[in-house]
Design a protein around this nucleic acid. Sequence first.
RNA 1: GUGGGCGUAGCUCAGCUGGUAGAGCACCGGGUUGUGGUCCCGGGGGUCGCGGGUUCGAGCCCCGUCGCUCACCCCA
Length: 419
Amino acid sequence: MSAIDAPKGVVEYLPPESATFLAVREALAAPAIAAGYGYAEVPIFEHTELFVRGVGESTDVVSKEMYTFDDRGGRSLSLRPEGTAGVMRAVIQHGLDRGPLPMKLWYAGPFFRAERPQHGRYRQFFQVGIEAIGVDDPALDAEVVAIGDSGFRSLGLTDFTLEITSLGDSTCRPGYREKLIAFLDTLDLDAATHARAQVNPLRVLDDKRTDVRRQLVDAPLMIDHLCSDCVEHFAATRAYLDALRVSYTLNPRMVRGLDYYTKTTFEFVHHGLGAQSGIGGGGRYDGLMAELGGQPLSGIGFGLGIDRAVLACRAEGLPIADERRLDVFFVPLGDAARLQSVATVGELRRAGVRADLAYGSKGLKGAMRAADRSSALYAVVVGDRDLDAGVSQLKDLTTGEQIAVPLNQLVATLKEKFL
RNA sequence: GUGGGCGUAGCUCAGCUGGUAGAGCACCGGGUUGUGGUCCCGGGGGUCGCGGGUUCGAGCCCCGUCGCUCACCCCA
């Protein structure tokens, strides 16, 4: 009879570390909420077709990393590998694109990719994402980037950089793409890389092998082949970023794994995480809505990795979670005292004081140990002697000082200390 | 999917040229049946990841497998 382990490649967050996960998720979402983004709760599985059309059939994500299965009616469903396609589907289905624009949404939850696990790369991972749909304004590009930036900054992270570039649009990208493929054809590359050059030539630009990099120094770059519209949009976006005092570096070789990106694309790269260094990324996707059968509206968004942000905080030695979970811990001695304590703890909790008590029959010593480990600042000891006298013993667990407090003043006394 | 490293108690790890498994921390109990955190004493915990092989004998050697990890790849 062997115990069952979790499936390969998943992360789990349990107390006390799980408090960090929650705090990071809150911090990453807060700037979006402050900017008027509304919350979207969408399914974690969709028709496989949505991702094939939205993300792109030739991408690694769709072609070999999705968890795909048939439901009982024989329809092909897939666990979502990213968030944008599903949110766009919901926007179109419920007509949100017919309301005031831009439509601004945020979401958070698990995503799934069947990859080889690695530090910071999990088969189920968690993101906070936002999408702003329907207005092709560079100021909106800058807003989205700035929201991501301030989310990470609010956690205290400093050892990361923001990289941005423009991937062009349907006017200028096709011509550049041909030029790049022609250039890559002339290089001395292995078969797999030549094949990749045909499917997604942009990706070859990001190759990490030195012999490949050496051949790429003179490669044509998208940033030098933008049409006038894209040049203008990119320049304006950068001006707005400057106005928002968001610092960034240009990375003309940045690669996105999803087909739908156009124009502004960006990535937050942390320097303390090893190979899985991207803690967030996103960009504009002006053709996606139309591709999915909606109105031809532009859009821009990002996904921020909660797991990697947690690792980044750890790498920078940032203590995120509040270590104190409790204000007061009750130690009842005997049944009458227990009844009294249960009632008082309930009253305190309703009032907003974080309270707990020693359950079970640990004995006084065991109950005091429990109080000590609960992280509470105060213990309240109540025994028969106290009940007869109408008092409880309020003990400061830091100093060891203990005073008698009349039972009818106990709740008021604790509320005064903690509220 | 491809390579390298590592799997010993809940955690961090030690374990000699193969000789029958240990420490610290944590947990539980006692010292102190109305007082925790320090201290002292004691206790429970392990199919040495799993399966096979070599051997009188395997935690240690060999093969396979699973998991973790680092890198490729991919990306959050």
